[in-house]
């Protein structure tokens, strides 16, 4: 773009804004968690273990020290990338997250892509024939899809795809991220294997966001259709589909990009419960297991990472938007 320096300055400013955001987020969660009743060491230790050993394990977990010391040392190590040791996972939090993150990114990315592709096309389809019976029917359908609880749809999908007739027609793996013999497959087979495992969870996860995107896209298309240059293009006698593609859809895309930041937290939230149901070894399941085991370092790390994902995703969405629309860079904040 013409104004690269401006864009970089803007990016840096946004990045700097994100840092205190993350630290503050970490602080909030850390102190909240330590208000909780229940001794995390009790879940881990055999009750018959002598008191001194229990104490030693607590020390090892950092639970014996005063709260503010735990907090400061934790904050210090977070900055250096050390998120502590997860006693429920038997490995460092960073390693546990490192193992889970790619799965969540894959699922979230696939669901995001699916929402924008499916939802976007549906919206454009509706927007080019507004207020027809088709449009109204689809409008109702998207609102229903938007209202269906994800966990419920997931259960119904499992029920459906484990039924014998459906299974013969469309054999899909139900749960997990890869097949048992994934390691034995050739590279092409592995990609296919991953894709097949993605279908059900990504479909369940993207249902509501796709519906939302469809509704946004529809109104964006409607708005773009009324823009002067589109009217002009139509006036020049260009073919309807070409006007739609060249002018309407292109202009409707920009506001959609700005929505990315809005959907990512939703997707991440939806992933928590869907990862549990679909045995998807990602961040959501890690968080849930951490909560169940009162594994403080793990819950802290996972929550922090979710916040970081959202912040980074928002940053990216903003940068894309700013790259496309220079006016944005000079606004100090969104909304």
């Amino acid at each position: 773009m013409r104004d690269d320096a401006g864009l970089i300055r803007y990016a840096l400013r946004r990045l700097l804004q994100a840092v205190p955001l993350l630290l503050a987020a970490a602080t909030v969660v850390f102190f909240l968690l330590h208000l909780a009743p229940g001794d995390p060491a009790a879940a881990y230790l055999h009750p018959d273990v002598p008191a001194e050993v229990a104490e030693q394990v607590r020390r090892q977990m950092g639970l014996g020290r005063p709260l503010h010391e735990q907090y400061l040392s934790w904050l210090g190590s977070v900055v250096t990338g050390d998120l502590g040791y997860s006693f429920s996972q038997g490995q460092t939090v960073a390693r546990a997250i490192g193992g889970a993150l790619p799965n969540t990114l894959l699922l979230g990315g696939a669901a995001l892509l699916l929402s924008f592709l499916a939802g976007g096309s549906l919206g454009v389809f509706q927007g080019t024939r507004p207020n027809t019976a088709t449009d109204r029917t689809l409008g109702t359908a998207t609102l229903v899809a938007y209202s269906v609880p994800g966990f419920w749809i997931a259960l119904l999908l499992l029920l459906l795809f484990s039924a014998a007739p459906v299974r013969e027609l469309l054999p899909l793996p139900l749960t997990g991220a890869t097949s048992v013999d994934h390691g034995l497959m050739d590279p092409g087979g592995r990609v296919l294997d991953r894709l097949r495992h993605l279908v059900l969870p990504a479909a369940a996860l993207s249902l509501a966001p796709a519906a939302a995107v469809a509704r946004h896209a529809r109104s964006a298309v409607l708005e773009a259709r009324d823009a002067d240059h589109v009217r002009a293009a139509r006036g020049r006698g260009l073919a309807a589909w070409s006007v739609t593609l060249r002018h309407v859809v292109r202009n409707a895309l920009l506001p959609l990009v700005s929505l990315l930041g809005l959907y990512i937290p939703r997707l991440m939230g939806g992933a928590v419960v869907l990862e549990v149901i679909f045995s998807w070894a990602g961040m959501g399941r890690l968080l849930y297991r951490g909560v169940q085991a009162r594994d403080y370092p793990l819950v802290l790390g996972a929550t922090l990472l979710f916040a970081a994902l959202v912040v980074v995703a928002n940053l990216l969405a903003d940068l894309v938007y700013a790259g496309a629309d220079p006016r944005v860079r000079y606004r100090s904040s969104r909304g």
């Binding site: 955001l21 208000l35 959501g284």
Partner: peptide, 25 residues
């Protein structure tokens, strides 16, 4: 106050709820 809003919006709601709901009875 808008920074506080930004801060809280960075957490997916369900993530925050799951983490917090487990803390109390």
């Amino acid at each position: 106050s808008m920074r506080v809003v930004d801060l809280l919006l960075a957490f997916p709601r369900i993530v925050l709820l799951v983490a917090a709901a487990a803390l109390f009875e």
